[in-house]
Design a protein around this nucleic acid. Sequence first.
DNA 1: GTCTATAAGGGGATAGAC
DNA 2: GTCTATCCCCTTATAGAC
Lengths: 195, 195
Amino acid sequence: MARTQGSHSDITGPRIREAALGLFARHGYAAVSMRQIAGEVGVQAGALYNYTPDKQSLLFRLMQDHMQELLAAYEELEPQADALGALRQFVGFHIRFHMQRPDEVFIAYMELRNLTPENFAEIEKLRRRYEDALQSILLAGQKDGLFSVQDAKIATLAVIAMLNGVMTWYRAGGRLSLDEVEQIYWDMVRKAVAA
Amino acid sequence: MARTQGSHSDITGPRIREAALGLFARHGYAAVSMRQIAGEVGVQAGALYNYTPDKQSLLFRLMQDHMQELLAAYEELEPQADALGALRQFVGFHIRFHMQRPDEVFIAYMELRNLTPENFAEIEKLRRRYEDALQSILLAGQKDGLFSVQDAKIATLAVIAMLNGVMTWYRAGGRLSLDEVEQIYWDMVRKAVAA
DNA sequence: GTCTATAAGGGGATAGAC
DNA sequence: GTCTATCCCCTTATAGAC
């Protein structure tokens, strides 16, 4: 794996982000050194600085890209006729999108405290936008008499917390298929906010 | 703050654990140095090793004590007549117990990956015992026709994940009292597992 | 664009004086 | 029980050769 010389600007950048993603997710940002990342990529540590100004930017960019992809993917979903359909769509989307990106998800909520204050604020803004999408669904359903939640903000956070729990235990090839998981969680979410 | 000489074996030990607890929770285990901990306590780094064989044991002991206190406190609750009462009691207990120990809770689920494999297994065993308590309630209620969950194990994890979400946003003195929070979450949990 | 070499500093943990 | 001093290794980031 250990390379010697040569120019690979087009592929080294993505490989650095890939390596950083996996290592940060496995060991934590603070516990991973630039040498480790370089080692995985097959370059020397100094070469990393052709692609990132510093370690912090590497983390921030991973988190920012993840949140922007999440929002973009969500905004491309088909509009739903009613709040019940929209909620079901949200549950399915959330589970499936996050299940495909376990490392990004893990980093996005474990490494918030390792962001500089400015970077933290930026990520929080994106996270808030996603939460607001769910809150809008709950409020619309409440208005139409489909849902009954005492506090839309708390219900939003409760639903997302519940769904995020999937990532801590689900493993592909386990006892349950993704369809079954989605169905089980949808059943609980639906009942939890039901009128 | 900076002390010079003297013997304080009876108070230094607890102060070290206290300092480590706060620092680990705020900055993360990997990002905190033994020198920082010593600085907060007011001793030199070398003195810490009279109380802990190494940094890892400091983390493990904090997590182990927390889990053992959680289990002991839960086991002292009054027995309930039916599963509905037991579930309500669990929800109230979980929220209130964890709300009083935000740092311990944060560490207990953020720093699992920084434990050695042996220590990790030990903490997991304790966590499993706590989850089993909730799962027993759900299974009993299912049998009595009070609850309807498709999968008791998943429902257990879903409920705990939802409740743990409280710790990420609740601040004393905020918009809602602890009673209100407990009531709102109880309402959602009750409905989510209802028959 | 990558390398080697290095600056400047912090890390965990230990030894021996007091 | 705590201190000072130290070992030895690792850290992020930069400089300059190729």
